[in-house]
Amino acid sequence: MIELVARTCPAEAAPRALWSASWWVVRRPALVVPAALALVLVLGTAPALDDGYGLRVLRGVGVLLACAWVTTTDDPSGEVLAGSPYPRAVRSVTRFLAGGAAVGAAWLVAAAVVQWRAPEVPVLALGVEFLALAAVGLGLGATLRAWRDQQHPAYTAVVGLAVLAFLSSALPRWYALQQSQTWGPPWEAAQVRWAAVLLVAVGVLGLALRDPLARARARRT
């Protein structure tokens, strides 16, 4: 479909066609439903957010939105578009950005509601947690797409993301990624660990998005 549009549209219209096609692919119930549930969660619990539930609610919103974002790793038309003028990395990044726009808007709404009802909640720090979870899911999905040639890696990636979300709070207090106490050395150490997870996940994502021919040449050398 992208190739057909690229042939019939002027060159300057090609990026818009790519963006439209990517949004058409990602605007599925797999993305819309978790994002809607995240908004329902934060708006439905808004009256109780100032009773100490703001931290938990915003973390739950982050997990739901990260799962929604990970669904953009699916490439249902990958085989058809393999010969299009856009390489797989460009198509993947455009899908990530299209889904990220919707997910990011939902996160901003949720963060604004929590900040309004519970100003003591560290919204920026929880934003780093959300980005780290999403980056892990996107990196896992992109890895499965690149090295296992899976057209629908989101199912496995979402499971991996759920496992990480569980382990982040199941570890002992001094090693857990999720801390209920938002001050002191354990909280600061947890933020450093989240930042490390984010950086590693972004690095893995970048490697997975490399051109297959470039990876083959690197293996030969």
Rank of each mutant, 00 (worst) to 15 (best):
P47L: 01
L41H: 02
S20T: 12
R27Y: 11
A21F: 00
P186M: 08
G127Q: 06
T71Y: 04
V40T: 09
G139S: 13
L31G: 03
A35T: 15
A106S: 13
A6K: 07
L124P: 10
A208N: 04
G184I: 07
P185Q: 07
L164I: 09
L43Y: 03
L55H: 09
G203M: 12
R56V: 13
V40A: 06
G60C: 04
V32W: 00
D211H: 08
R88I: 11
V32P: 01
G44W: 08
A135R: 02
R220C: 11
A216P: 12
L177I: 02
V163G: 04
A214R: 12
G54P: 04
L18V: 08
L64V: 05
H152C: 06
A89D: 07
A102I: 15
V200N: 13
Y155R: 10
A36P: 07
A208P: 08
G83K: 01
R56T: 10
P47H: 05
G203F: 14
A146S: 06
W147G: 03
A89G: 05
V158N: 03
V163Y: 04
L18A: 06
S77C: 12
E120V: 15
A214T: 13
G160P: 02
W183G: 10
R56S: 09
L205V: 09
A98R: 07
A176E: 05
S84V: 15
V123W: 01
L198A: 10
S20W: 15
A146W: 03
A165R: 00
Q151S: 14
L161V: 03
L126C: 12
W24L: 10
T221Y: 13
L207P: 00
L37F: 09
L144E: 03
A218L: 10
H152Y: 10
T182P: 13
L126Y: 09
L171H: 08
A196N: 05
V26N: 02
P76R: 02
Q178M: 07
R219S: 09
R219Y: 10
E129T: 14
L65S: 11
P34N: 07
T72G: 02
P186Y: 10
V33Q: 04
V93R: 00
W116R: 12
L31V: 01
T94M: 04
V90G: 06
W24T: 09
W107K: 06
L207M: 05
L213W: 15
A38E: 10
L108P: 00
R16H: 13
R219Q: 10
